[in-house]
């Protein structure tokens, strides 16, 4: 057994470091990046929304015409829906064990995320441009 201490993995595989899932720590990392982004974004959004909660339509429309508020809203939508997709994916992978249902659920939340996030972002853009 002269090869006993030799690594079984090729050097290239170690360099890539992507593991069996072929995407390395990307899912884990993006969940953290979106989480960190949401801490300031959502605190700002929450204070603004609390202020708008009892206001009329004109006050809401006026807020969204401010570029900074529209930008924070759009970035929040991006971070929230991305984080949501990653989180729901883990929940499905943990609890849905039949292969077909799992694939269908994963496709379902992916499409739902993009459709819902798209609608939310489009609404913000419409308010911003005042169309």
């Amino acid at each position: 057994m002269s090869n006993a201490n030799k690594p079984m993995r090729s050097a290239l595989k170690n360099v890539r470091g992507l593991g069996a899932a072929k995407e390395g720590v990307q899912h884990w990392w993006l969940q953290r990046v979106t989480a960190m982004a949401m801490i300031p974004l959502l605190l700002v959004m929450l204070v603004c929304l609390l202020k708008l909660a009892t206001g009329d339509h004109a006050a809401v429309a006026a807020s969204f015409r401010h570029p900074l508020f529209a930008l924070v809203a759009l970035l929040s939508i991006l971070a929230v829906f991305w984080h949501m997709k990653l989180g729901l994916q883990v929940v499905i992978e943990d609890y849905v064990h039949s292969e077909g249902l799992k694939m269908a659920s994963l496709l379902g939340i992916t499409f739902a995320t993009f459709i819902l996030g798209g609608i939310a972002a489009l609404s913000v853009l419409k308010l911003f441009f005042g169309a």
Partner: peptide, 17 residues
């Protein structure tokens, strides 16, 4: 729960728009 709540949030944004 928050994921389900994004439907409400989107509904509110659509209403504002």
């Amino acid at each position: 729960g928050l994921a389900a709540g994004t439907v409400l949030l989107t509904w509110w944004l659509v209403a504002a728009a």
